[in-house]
Design a binder for these strands. Structure first.
Lengths: 208, 208
DNA sequence: GTCTATAAAACGATAGAC
DNA sequence: GTCTATCGTTTTATAGAC
């Protein structure tokens, strides 16, 4: 078993944490290394020492969250298939639950904003990085949807997955109107969101 | 008349056009006034002379497109109600057709990327500007959906509209996998997209 | 209205002492 | 690994001639 890692945070970890906050708030161009290192309580030169450049730092900010997120998704998909619970609802659950769970954490919601920025940026090198490292996850889920919806043409299926993805992305990003009410616990709200999403996605995927 | 260069549009309009292109490509912080004025073929000082500041220029870039877009949406909704064609499909058509039509124009697709950036930015002053100037459109369509889906609770309705909005936004932004094929005309592809969206949205809004 | 010239500040990155 | 100091650029914004 691993030792308890957090020795009041290494310089590297503190930079990653501060970078996530500031990239979410001010964007990749908008957040300067000066603001970033000041927020992390480290020296200005530390970013270039530990990461090589600002761009490499951006890449590590993504990797820290997405490695675990997509591992969770594939693990959930795998165990759903093993246990025979691989209806459409279960596959959708495996896809969205880890992401929504992350987006409902304090730090995760910040990261979702970073991710939204990355998509809005249309930055080719960043998109290539995301595609190379995590594209296989989307391909695996797409194959699963194709298996469960065999009556749909390939084109029709892609259309519907695309629109479902839009709805999920929107919900994850927290751009929507829906806010958690005072009398609903955080966990209950997460579960409500997941169930709304799944029912909506099932309707959109299966309609005649 | 001394027209060597494009005198058909004013300095102000040329700046707006160049700003839209560069804000889409490089973001609001990423596009500098130097790049912008060079692309527009005007002097560096012209932005501050005509708009007052870079922020005011951003505001005008939005206003130029959104004023007409939302006027088209409300006009389409009004004429649908007048003619009695106010089924769910017709209301959705009024909401998405003007937006998708805009997003399929050359300059419009650029603007959609600008809009996506604005949402990702989470910039409060910009969001307030959008809400103040165009919030009434969303409220009017929401009221129309409530009228056509009376069996849904307010909360359930908001959830579904929210998810539909996500799907529409995604389709408008052009982030999806679906690309127009060679043998499909631009107009036909637009119509396909609209029909896919409407059918998907109807399923998501009306499912039991 | 448009231009040149420049002020004043912020940026990423790095060299070199410790 | 961390620090100070600074280089070389680039930024927004403005002053003042025409």
């Amino acid at each position: 078993m691993k030792a308890i890692v957090n020795r009041s945070s290494s310089t590297k970890e503190r930079i990653l944490g501060a970078a996530e906050v500031l990239f979410a708030q001010r964007g990749f161009e908008g957040a300067s290394l000066r603001q970033l290192t000041a927020a992390a309580g480290v020296n200005l030169a530390a970013v270039n020492y530990h990461f090589g450049s600002k761009d490499k730092l951006v890449e590590q900010v993504f990797r820290r969250r997405l490695d675990t997120l997509n591992a969770q998704r594939l693990a959930a998909l795998g165990s759903a298939r093993e246990s025979g619970n691989d209806r459409l609802e279960d596959v959708l659950d495996a896809f969205i639950r880890p992401a929504l769970k992350l987006s409902h954490e304090d730090s995760g919601s910040l990261f979702m904003r970073v991710l939204a920025r990355a998509f809005a940026e249309h930055d080719d090198s960043l998109r290539q990085f995301l595609s190379e490292n995590y594209g296989h996850v989307m391909r695996q889920f797409t194959a699963e949807f194709a298996r469960l919806l065999p009556h749909l043409s390939k084109e029709e299926l892609y259309w519907r997955i695309d629109l479902v993805t839009g709805a999920l992305t929107h919900a994850m990003s927290g751009f929507g109107m829906i806010q958690r009410k005072q009398d609903v616990s955080e966990g209950a709200h997460l579960e409500q969101t997941i169930q709304h999403l799944i029912r909506f996605a099932v309707a959109g995927l299966t309609h005649p």
